[in-house]
């Protein structure tokens, strides 16, 4: 059986909130290392990969592999009933029909309990190759959200270009064009505002802004976001969580004409 308790429901609420508009039905794959999720969007352009490691929970117990087939819209409805600071416990039997969720507000001695019906989801798993990316950009997640929102007003696409001088986001549309350039920036007193660019070779790729703005719904999960680019492979956008857990998005590029 699965039993996994989080000190605050916030992490799980925010993670589900970040992906629910991109993927609808997906399996939460539970085993002794934690809870993982991999799912593509309907048009097979983007892939979500989430890993909540066992260490993120206390306690965490999962004796055998359990796939929890969940409709994320339904899960969101249930999670809406959880206070951000409630403790959250997920429980399931070995061959479960339901996922049991318990929210506890210890200060108020209030306990709420829900059973969410599960479904059988025949899921395709994709092998994600280990990639040595040409450019890895770490930047404030709020800045990335601002850039994608601002450029969305200009165009449906953005070209991300990483060079030794910085990273440039540029869009061209019917009304004109716009760009934002960020240079490496490491303020000692404000680590959250750091912009770091690791570059093995310059790279420029074009992506759909519709998907990028969607990924930015994960912004509350982490102050920093990592963008990893290599020529002609999907972009990886990573929101790192405590203890090595993560929420990653992969987005296939737009190539040629």
């Amino acid at each position: 059986m699965l039993e996994a308790r989080l000190d605050t429901a916030n992490l799980f609420k925010s993670a589900v909130d970040a992906i629910k508009d991109l993927v609808q039905d997906c399996n939460f794959d539970c085993n002794d290392s934690g809870i993982a999720l991999q799912a593509m969007d309907n048009s097979h352009v983007a892939l979500v990969s989430m890993m909540l490691k066992a260490e993120a929970f206390s306690p965490f117990r999962c004796d055998r592999n359990i796939a929890l087939g969940v409709n994320l819209t339904s899960l969101t409805k249930v999670l809406r009933a959880a206070g951000r600071d409630d403790t959250l416990t997920l429980k399931a039997e070995d061959a479960p029909d339901v996922l049991n969720l318990v929210f506890e507000a210890t200060a108020q001695d209030r306990i709420s309990e829900y059973d969410l019906k599960l479904m059988d989801i025949d899921q395709e798993h994709l092998g994600i190759p280990d990639t040595e990316y040409a450019a890895t950009i770490s930047m404030p997640s709020a800045e990335f959200k601002r850039i994608t929102t601002d450029l969305m007003a200009m165009s449906e696409s953005v070209t991300i270009e990483a060079t030794k001088d910085g990273v440039k986001f540029s869009s061209t549309g019917d009304i004109g064009n716009g760009s934002i350039t960020l240079r490496q920036h490491t303020p000692v007193d404000k680590p959250n505002e750091t912009v770091e660019i690791e570059l093995s070779e310059p790279v420029a790729l074009t992506f759909s802004l519709k998907y990028l703005t969607n990924f930015c719904k994960a912004q509350p999960l982490s102050n920093q976001v990592k963008l990893c680019l290599s020529a002609e492979v999907p972009l990886m956008v990573e929101y790192g969580l405590e203890g090595g857990s993560y929420l990653r998005f992969y987005l296939a590029p737009k190539i040629g004409d």
């Binding site: 593509m40 994709l126 987005l251 737009k254």
Partner: peptide, 14 residues
Amino acid sequence: TGKQQSILGFFSKT
């Protein structure tokens, strides 16, 4: 601005 590729063109089914 280029043709949108599919993620399936890069990652293989396991």
